[in-house]
Amino acid sequence: MSDKSVTAAVLVIGDEILSGRTRDANSHYIAHYLLQIGVETREIRVVPDVEAEIVTALDALRARYDYVFTTGGIGPTHDDITADAVAKAFDVEISEDPRAIALLLERIKPEDLNEARRRMARIPHGAALVTNPISKAPGFWIGNVIVMAGVPAIMQAMLDDVAPKLVRGAKILSETIDAPGVPEGAYAAGLTELAKAYPQVSIGSYPSLREGKFFNQVVLRGRDEAVLAEAAAKAKAMLAEVAASHSP
């Protein structure tokens, strides 16, 4: 475990996400999963199945964060170009990997391993494989980039495979305070002052609608349990005072 924060970005690849045809469930899952193990997701991007755009995004993200997790674009069809884009970003060759072929043959008969399916065995040189216990076609890990499938169940299995190998920072703790019936504008100034007093604590206000009424929550996050508890106590007192002044 690292004493410093460990950061990550998620790069979602696929025209189907941008067109609205497919709902992206992967980035939400990855961000929540990583948070539980001490890796903080700082950025999420979605790019189309265009090599130049994938390479540009990869180069920007891998230089900025400790890890970059990609999802999508490693299947057998012509628009699955993620592996080629990653190879180009790292300036390495790409070819069929005997390790990946062996994995595919655990599920596919040799006579059925056609050209399309063999595409899933093309791995950038120097990459480690990421296990896929569901359909066997592997993801891969090169540098600080971890390439996973777009199918949620497979992506989740791949994430389980790589998680034990990640460098982890101190776990981020959180405290949620309900503020029902209290308008954000009434406590915004109080939160601003609290944020200034506790710069090591992330403080956010999140409104929602429940049964036609606004229901607000204030969420505090930090790595120091004592400091977080102190900030949360002051937030609760401030919100209680505001609520009392707005009660009928």
Score class of each variant (00 low, 15 high):
P183W: 06
V55H: 00
I146A: 00
L103H: 02
A229I: 09
D97Y: 09
A233S: 14
V50C: 04
A121M: 02
F90I: 00
P76C: 09
V201L: 05
G169Y: 14
V151C: 07
P98T: 05
R107N: 10
E16L: 07
M148W: 03
R21S: 11
A163C: 05
R122N: 03
R99Q: 10
G204N: 11
V201W: 08
L194G: 07
T22K: 11
S202C: 04
E230G: 02
L129R: 11
I81V: 14
I172K: 12
F69C: 03
W141D: 01
R42P: 01
A197F: 04
A170L: 13
D161E: 11
A226G: 00
I44P: 01
E53F: 07
V201T: 14
E184C: 09
E106V: 14
L58Q: 08
A85L: 09
E184L: 01
A89L: 02
Y187G: 04
V147Q: 02
G75C: 07
P248Q: 07
V50Y: 00
L35P: 00
N144Q: 03
R168P: 02
Y206P: 03
I177D: 04
I123K: 08
M148H: 03
R221K: 15
T192E: 14
V12G: 01
Q36W: 01
G190W: 04
V92N: 10
L18C: 10
I146Q: 06
M158C: 06
D91G: 02
M1S: 14
V92T: 15
K165I: 06
M1C: 05
D84Q: 15
H246G: 01
K234C: 11
A31S: 15
V227F: 01
R210E: 15
A231L: 03
K136F: 12
F69A: 01
L129W: 10
N132H: 10
E40Q: 12
L228P: 14
A237V: 05
K136R: 14
Y67T: 03
T56C: 06
I81P: 06
G38Y: 13
S247M: 07
M120P: 07
L173Y: 03
P180A: 09
E93V: 04
Y29E: 08
D15M: 12
A83V: 06
A197N: 08
K109Q: 13
L103P: 00
T70N: 03
L105T: 05
P48C: 13
V47I: 06
A157M: 11
A128L: 09
E175V: 10
R119D: 03
F140P: 01
D66G: 06
P207D: 11
K4Q: 15
E111T: 13
D79I: 08
G212Y: 08
S135L: 14
P76I: 12
A226P: 01
A8Q: 03
K171G: 10
A188Q: 04
L35D: 05
L173C: 05
H28M: 11
P248Y: 10
R117Q: 13
L61Q: 11
Y206F: 15
K88E: 06
V227T: 15
S2L: 12
L220E: 12
S5Q: 13
G222V: 12
Y65R: 01
S27V: 06
R117C: 08
E211D: 15
R23W: 04
A83D: 02
N144I: 00
L228M: 04
Q156S: 01
